[in-house]
């Protein structure tokens, strides 16, 4: 009996040590399991993406993207902000400029936007937004992320002293693909910007 008691008391300190060791062991075990899951996830991602890139499904993506030459990177480097579709729909910018050719503008544009085709910035500004405050937020868009016209117009606005120029990179394609309202005709006459 006495022996048993001694053993038990010995077990108490040993047990604490043991439970700490087992906790440490369990922590290692969990870390290894988590690493296994991470590796499995990488393998699944690689497999599914390779399958998509081979044409098995849509939406395959190259593993390394050239984001530095993406229009948003260029805009941000030039001090031009990014305007989202939601901000455009909520009319956060005071003026919205459509940098596409005038025929496309007439066929349909973001409600309240003014035409401002690249290469014709001065005339367009004088014609439509001559009294625009240079401190007011202005947004520019063109077809989508692949077109350079909106960036060109945004840079020209910046050079003309507009302080808060924003680019809507999604452009007309994103706007229409997501059910944005469409206004047709000449210079925002059907619905004037408030």
């Amino acid at each position: 009996m006495t022996d048993g008691d001694v053993m038990r008391r010995g077990d108490f300190s040993n047990g604490w040590k043991k439970s700490f060791q087992s906790l440490e062991k369990r922590a290692w075990c969990t870390a290894v399991d988590a690493a296994v899951l991470l590796a499995l996830a990488a393998a699944l991602a690689a497999g599914v993406n390779a399958w998509k890139l081979r044409g098995g499904g849509s939406g395959g993506l190259p593993w390394v993207g050239d984001w530095d030459s993406y229009v948003e990177s260029k805009a941000l480097a030039a001090g031009i902000g990014i305007v989202t579709m939601r901000e455009l729909a909520d009319r956060v910018p005071s003026a919205v400029l459509d940098a596409r050719p005038r025929e496309l503008y007439r066929a349909g544009h973001v409600p309240g936007a003014w035409p401002c085709p690249a290469g014709d910035v001065d005339a367009s500004l004088a014609e439509h937004v001559a009294d625009l405050d240079p401190a007011a937020p202005v947004a520019v868009y063109c077809d989508g992320a692949a077109c350079a016209d909106s960036l060109e117009v945004a840079l020209e606005l910046k050079a003309r002293g507009f302080a808060r120029v924003g680019l809507y990179p999604g452009g007309w394609s994103e706007w229409t693909a997501n059910g944005g309202a469409v206004e047709t005709g000449e210079t925002g006459e059907t619905e004037a910007a408030p």
């Binding site: 991470l38 499995l40 996830a41 990488a42 699944l44 690689a46 993406n49 984001w67 530095d68």
Partner: peptide
């Protein structure tokens, strides 16, 4: 960094699935 964006975007959802 620019080079890591796509790899992260491809990897992360599968981590979510396995978790």
């Amino acid at each position: 960094p620019s080079w890591a964006v796509n790899a992260f975007a491809l990897w992360l959802p599968w981590i979510e699935v396995l978790a």
